[in-house]
Design a protein around this nucleic acid. Structure first.
Length: 568
RNA sequence: UGGGGCGUCGGCAAGUGGUAAGCCAUCGGUUUUUGGUAUCGACAUUCGUAGGUUCGAAUCCUACCGCCCCAGCCA
C-alpha cells in the first residue's frame, strides 16, 4: 500500500494531442479557448460537452477559456437566456470571471470598421438583389453560382451604400454586404457569403444603435481574433465553414490568427438534443418547461438531481473524436449511479404503502435502531430510526402467491426489516368487497434485534419500512425516459418525433410514507439521498415545509425485475 | 454532376508498420442486513470491402462500398 497514487489518468483526445504537438513544435501562445453560445435558448447535454472540452483543454494546458455570447441576431436572442446560460456554466463548475465574459456585440464597432476596409480593398460589395435572387444565383450542389449584377460596383458606391445601410436609410432586406470570393466555388460557403444584413430589430444589449448586424461567419473568427483565441473549438457541421473562417482572418487586419478545430457532437439514445426540438417540447407543453426533470437540458438534469461532476465524468469517458456516434444512455445512467452511490446518504421511504402489524409487539412501544447512513462509507455514520408495532412496507414487496425465487413477503414467509429485525407473515387481511390486500400481520423474533439472524438461519429478503406513527407524508415523482424509442427522430414519412414520446414518463405518487428525518429536509431544495432499495432522490423546487416533494433521479439497478421479466 | 468529413466488438473509444487497451451493455460466478454496492471471469484471429507494397499492415498505396454534413439575409 505504498505511494501508488498515480495521478488520475486523464484520457487523451485528438484535440489535446494536437495542442500538445503544437507546443512541442515550438513557441505557442497561451492556450485560449472560448465557449460561444447564442443566447436564444437553454443549454443542454450537448453544450455540456462543448463546455467541458473548451474549459478543460484550456485548463489542461494552463490557459484560459472565455465565455462569449454570440449575439449577432437580435431577432432570436434575449437577455433571459444570457442569464440562464451563465447560471448553467457556473453550475457545471466553471467559474468564469466577469472579465472573461464577452459578447460578440461588444465588437460591432470594430467589425464594421473592418467591413469598410474590406470594401475599400475591393473584397466586399453591397448587393441589392432580393433574397430570392441571391438564393437563385447562388446555384446549388450541381450548378455553380452566377455573379450578382451588383458585384462590380465601385468602391465609392459600395462605401456610400454601406454607410447608408448603417445609417438606416434602407428597409430590411433591401441591401446586404457580401464578401467577394468566388461564385463558382465548390464550397457553397465561399460563393460570396453575406457579411451584413439590415435588421431593424432592437438588440438586447446594443438597443437601437445598430440596424445592420454581422452574420455568424463574419463575426465569429474576428471575435476569436480580438480575444486572442488560439483554438476555436466547434462541432463538425462547421467544417465547411473553416475555409471561410480562414479567408476572413487572412483578409482582415486582425490582431491574431485563431485556429478552428471541429469535433463530433454528443448524441444519446432515447434522447433528443436539438434546440429546435427541445423548444417544441416546451412550447407544446409536452413537458413542464425547460427545467422539467425529464428534459436533457442542464437545468433539467440539475432539477432531476444530477451532480454536475457526473456530466464531466461522462464527457471524459465518452471521449472526443470526429466520428458522429450515439452514446448509449445506459452509460450516463451508470456514471450517475456510481456517483450517487458514493455520495448519497441512505434513508427509508415507502412509496406505495401497505400496513404491517407486528402482533407480538405491544402497542405504544417505541424502539430505536441505529441505521448506517451509508454502508459503503463508515465515515457517514449512523442515525436512529424509530420502530413500532405498526409499520408501512412497500406493496410491491408482498405477494399472496410467491413466484419462484421470491425472497420478499408472502404468507408464512420470513423476511428481514432492514436494520430492525426478522418478521414472519402470519395473516393477510383483505377488503371483503374488493379482495384487495389491506393489511399484513406478522410476528417478530425478539432475538433478531438489529436484523441479525440469531441462529444463522437464512433470510434472503430484506425490506425497507417506516414506522406508521413516525412517518411523514410526502409526494414523490418518478421519471422515466421521455422517449420510448432508441432514436426518437427516426420516424416514418409524415411522422414526428413527438410520436415517440413515452406516455409514462412521469408518475406522481402522493401519500408516500417517509422516514421522519426526511421531513426535515423538505426545504433543502436539491438535497440528495438514496431511498433504500428504490433509487436516488432529491428534494424538488416545489417542496415546502410540511409538504415534501422528492424527485427520483434514477432507480437502483433492479436484477429482480429483470429476472421476472425474463421468466415472463 | 459539387464540396467537406467519417468508417476498429451491440454502443462509445484507444491504436499512427511489429502482430487488437479501456469503459458501457450482455452473460456467468463470489460476497452481501439494499435482489444495491463491491469483486472475479467470458465477450473482435480481426479493424467497411477488394487488391497491392512489406519479413510483417487496423496502421502505407489503389479502387470500390457505406454513412453524415452543406444550397438561412440562423448560429
Amino acid at each position: 500500500m505504498t505511494a501508488e497514487h498515480d495521478e488520475p489518468e486523464v484520457a487523451t483526445n485528438f484535440v489535446a494531442d494536437l495542442i500538445e504537438a503544437e507546443q512541442q513544435a515550438g513557441a505557442v501562445a497561451t492556450v485560449t479557448t472560448r465557449f460561444p453560445p447564442e443566447p436564444n435558448g437553454y443549454l443542454h447535454l450537448g453544450h455540456a460537452k462543448a463546455i467541458w472540452l473548451a474549459f478543460g483543454v484550456a485548463k489542461r494546458f494552463g490557459g484560459v477559456c472565455n465565455l462569449r455570447f454570440d449575439d449577432t441576431n437580435p431577432a432570436a436572442e434575449e437577455a433571459e437566456f444570457v442569464e440562464s446560460i451563465r447560471t448553467d456554466v457556473a453550475w457545471l463548475g466553471y467559474a468564469v470571471a466577469d472579465e472573461r465574459v464577452f459578447f460578440a456585440s461588444d465588437y460591432f464597432e470594430q467589425l464594421y470598421a473592418w467591413a469598410e476596409q474590406l470594401v475599400e480593398d475591393g473584397k466586399a460589395y453591397v448587393d441589392s438583389q432580393t433574397a430570392e435572387e441571391i438564393r437563385d444565383n447562388r446555384g446549388n450542389f450541381y450548378k455553380p453560382g452566377v455573379d450578382s449584377p451588383f458585384r462590380d460596383r465601385s468602391v465609392a458606391d459600395n462605401l456610400d451604400l454601406l454607410r447608408r445601410m448603417k445609417a438606416g436609410e434602407f428597409k430590411d432586406g433591401q441591401h446586404v454586404l457580401r464578401a467577394k470570393i468566388d461564385m463558382a466555388h465548390g464550397n457553397i460557403n465561399l460563393r460570396d457569403p453575406l457579411m451584413y444584413r439590415i435588421l431593424k430589430e432592437r438588440h438586447h444589449r446594443t438597443g437601437d444603435t445598430w440596424c445592420i448586424y454581422p452574420m455568424y461567419d463574419y463575426a465569429h473568427g474576428q471575435s476569436d481574433a480580438i480575444e486572442r483565441i488560439t483554438h476555436s473549438l466547434c462541432t463538425l457541421e462547421f467544417e465547411d465553414h473553416r475555409p471561410l473562417y480562414e479567408w476572413f482572418v487572412d483578409n482582415v487586419a486582425v490582431p491574431a490568427k485563431p485556429r478552428q478545430i471541429e469535433f463530433a457532437k454528443l448524441h444519446f439514445t432515447f434522447t433528443v438534443l436539438s434546440k429546435r426540438k427541445l423548444k417544441q417540447l416546451v412550447a407544446e407543453n409536452v413537458v413542464d418547461g425547460w427545467d422539467d426533470p425529464r428534459m436533457p437540458t442542464i437545468s433539467g438534469v440539475r432539477r432531476r438531481g444530477y451532480p454536475p461532476e457526473v456530466l464531466a465524468e461522462l464527457c471524459e469517458r465518452v471521449g472526443v473524436a470526429k466520428r458522429e456516434g450515439i452514446v448509449d444512455v445506459a452509460l450516463l445512467d451508470h456514471i450517475l449511479r456510481e456517483n450517487l452511490n458514493r455520495t448519497s446518504p441512505r434513508a427509508m421511504a415507502v412509496l406505495r404503502p401497505l400496513k404491517l402489524i407486528i402482533d407480538n409487539l405491544p402497542e405504544g412501544e417505541v424502539m430505536h435502531f441505529d441505521v448506517p447512513n451509508n454502508p459503503g462509507d463508515e465515515a457517514a455514520g449512523t442515525r436512529s430510526v424509530a420502530f413500532t408495532r405498526e409499520l408501512w412496507v412497500e406493496r410491491d414487496d408482498f405477494r399472496e402467491e410467491a413466484p419462484k425465487k421470491w425472497f420478499r413477503l408472502a404468507p408464512g414467509k420470513e423476511v428481514r426489516l432492514r436494520s430492525a429485525c426478522l418478521v414472519r407473515c402470519t395473516e393477510v387481511i383483505k377488503d371483503p368487497e374488493t379482495g384487495e390486500v389491506i393489511q399484513l400481520h406478522c410476528t417478530w423474533d425478539p432475538e433478531s434485534k438489529g436484523g441479525r439472524s440469531p441462529d444463522g438461519r437464512k433470510v434472503r429478503g430484506t425490506l425497507h419500512w417506516v414506522s406508521a406513527q413516525h412517518a411523514v407524508e410526502g409526494t414523490v415523482r418518478l421519471f422515466d425516459r421521455l422517449f420510448s424509442t432508441e432514436n426518437p427522430t427516426d420516424v416514418p414519412e409524415g411522422g414526428s418525433f413527438l410520436d415517440n414520446i413515452n406516455p409514462d414518463s412521469l408518475e406522481v405518487l402522493t401519500g408516500c410514507k417517509l422516514e421522519a428525518s426526511l421531513g426535515e429536509r423538505a426545504t433543502e431544495h436539491g438535497w440528495r439521498c438514496q431511498f433504500e432499495r428504490l433509487g436516488y432522490f432529491c428534494v424538488d423546487l416545489d417542496s415546502a415545509q410540511g409538504a415534501p416533494v422528492f424527485n427520483r433521479t434514477i432507480g437502483l439497478r433492479d436484477s429482480w425485475a429483470k429476472l421476472e421479466k425474463k421468466n415472463a
